[in-house]
Nucleic acid binder design. Structure first.
Length: 530
RNA sequence: GGCUGUGUAGCUCAGUUGGUGAGAGCGCACGACUCAUAAUCGUGAGGUCGGCGGUUCGAAUCCGCCCACAGCUACCA
């Protein structure tokens, strides 16, 4: 069976999850469910990135240990995945997991064995009060002429500390060659361009350890005596964070049954961390002699009515609030249907409402309801037997049948926006077809023809319902229930979804005449709110 | 400043390698129908395709300049 391994970025759990996190998890979930329904052996990894100075500082402020803080906050993310978003991850990895420690130390050893790690000093703006370094742009010179950290207002001084470095500089050409040979490695193109230009400008070696704090994975004992030191180093968090992707595939256990998943097919990330995934990560892997992931898909940020989401503006949306207000499936649908994945998006209450009422209630929901109602009331609640198909029947059926290939093509590049657009075009046409055929008139004049029209319509609804299971698992399941399609698996939640009447393998298994249906009820009620 | 993009109907956007009179969805107006979730179907509104200039028989689509907006320009994550 073909494997498909995909990941989200792991969240830094020093704050609460917001709709931006949810966006990434949902999109990745949709991709994972799609592949499972399409018969792939899928593994979906998500989790939390728990080390680093900020976690340690936050813990100190709150009077708990870093581990306690991490455990508490990781649980918040995991609960959101489980109880709010219905995310079908296969493992929720925490960078504090024991196997991840082993994995991170092993990739470090391999990079070292390849001669890419050396000991030197790292210089930067250091705040004694905050006990941390600040990047140049995180500092400013105040009115007294003293350089301070913008965030905390404390004085910073130019300081050097011992650090291990990674020879990133020697990987620029190799990276460029890889980008050129693998044009789909980074998407969308505009993000890829940014990465190319950055690398073309030359790369500096990267400081990959810290001695100024200890909340991290210890650097393993060096084998090369020149690297020996009496200081305690922990890994720079990005070394450990990125490595989660191979830990999730069983690294370094050569016997692991998870090994079949590497190289990953897809890393889904936000645009703020493209450099780490498109430059540092492949360089680390090259150094360690590990295959590179096949693709990094970079999504955009969500704006609230065109404005950046921020705590100070007070327009931060909590996923649970949205799910409660509109329904989870509506939220999932909206986020993928409203704007292209890879572009920034803007959401608003009116926008969600329009999508919900127009696309879900009026279009898909009502098409289902009007056709099922006629069957229920006039045809003894049994799926009718179609007669000879007219050109019009065949046209709409063929358009619906073509959606599977269209979706596969678009999903290959995570173009959920166009995939959904194509499906809704078919639904638009089907509503027009239904109105044009006027089955309510045929009821009195030509019952056989009415049966054909109703069967054609229901068959198209079946295909669309089957198709949209990854996007709206709950609602699609209700639609398939209403059509009397025999249940199989779980709408893409597990690999069991790859076969049976609700898998994509059943794409051409048409709706069986004679199937009993229940009294239809609205699957997508219009939005009601005071 | 440099680099990369974007700028098309009220809104969100499509528009292959330049070619019949510039499109879709939503929203809006009017009309039709009544199977259906006050849903659906049809018609329409007539937008200098950011601006100027150029190439061409012909450009939203190529070239140049300009304007506006966004992103990137490394080690907090």
């Amino acid at each position: 069976m073909n494997t498909y391994y995909l990941t989200t970025a792991i969240a830094y759990p020093n704050g609460e999850p917001h709709i931006g996190h949810a966006y990434e998890y949902i999109a990745t979930d949709v991709m994972a469910r799609f592949k499972r329904l399409d018969g792939f052996d899928v593994r979906y990894l998500t989790g939390t990135d728990e080390h680093g100075q900020k976690m340690q500082q936050t813990a100190i402020q709150e009077g708990v240990t870093p581990m306690e803080l991490a455990t508490r906050n990781a649980a918040v993310f995991q609960e959101m995945d489980d109880e709010v978003l219905n995310i079908s991850y296969d493992r929720f990895i925490r960078t504090t997991d024991a196997d991840h420690h082993a994995s991170s130390q092993e990739i470090w050893r391999r990079m070292e064995a390849n001669g890419d790690i050396y000991l030197d000093t790292y210089a930067g703006w250091y705040s004694v009060r905050d006990e941390r370094f600040f990047a140049d742009e995180e500092t400013q010179v105040n009115e007294q002429g003293v350089r301070i950290a913008t965030e905390t207002g404390t004085e910073v001084t130019w300081t050097e500390e011992e650090s291990y470095f990674f020879r990133l500089s020697s990987y620029a050409d190799k990276l460029l060659a890889h980008y050129k040979a693998n044009p789909d490695f980074i998407a969308p193109q505009t993000r890829a361009n940014e990465v190319f230009r950055f690398v073309e400008g030359g790369l500096e070696d990267l400081s990959i350890s810290r001695t100024s704090f200890d909340w991290g994975i210890p650097v393993p004992e060096p084998t090369n005596p020149e690297l020996a030191t009496d200081k305690d180093h922990v890994m720079y968090v990005w070394v450990d964070a990125l490595t989660n992707y191979i830990t999730g595939a069983g690294f370094p256990d050569a016997q692991s049954e998870l090994k079949r998943y590497w190289p990953a097919d897809l890393h889904v990330i936000g645009k703020d961390i493209s450099r780490f995934h498109c430059i540092f990560w492949p360089a680390f892997l090259m150094s360690a002699g590990i295959e590179l992931p096949k693709r990094v898909m970079i999504h955009g940020f969500l704006n609230n009515e065109g404005e950046k989401m921020s705590k100070s503006v007070g327009n931060v949306v909590h996923p649970a609030d949205w799910a409660d207000r509109y329904g989870l499936d509506t939220v999932r649908f909206f986020l993928l249907r409203e704007f292209p994945f890879g572009s920034d998006g803007s959401y608003s209450h009116d926008g969600v409402l329009r999508r919900k009422n127009a696309d879900l209630s009026n279009n898909l929901g009502n098409l289902t309801q009007r056709s099922l109602s006629m069957v229920y009331k006039n045809l003894d609640a049994k799926v009718p037997e179609p007669g000879e198909l007219t050109d019009q029947d065949q046209k709409v059926l063929a358009d619906a049948a073509a959606l599977m290939d269209t979706w596969r093509t678009h999903f290959e590049v995570q173009d959920f926006y166009r995939a959904l657009g194509a499906a809704w075009k078919v639904l638009d046409d089907t509503n027009a077809y239904f109105a044009d055929q006027q089955p309510w008139v045929l009821r009195k004049t030509d019952e056989a023809r009415m049966k054909t029209v109703l069967w054609v319509t229901l068959e198209i609804v079946r295909r669309v319902a089957l198709l949209v299971q990854p996007v709206m698992p709950e609602s699609a399941t209700k639609l398939l229930d209403a059509l009397g399609v025999e249940a199989s698996a779980d709408a893409g939640k597990t690999n069991a979804s790859g076969q049976g009447p609700r898998s994509y393998a059943a794409w051409d298994t048409q709706l069986a005449p004679g199937t009993a249906i229940d009294k239809p009820t609205a699957v997508f009620p219009r939005h009601e709110e005071e």
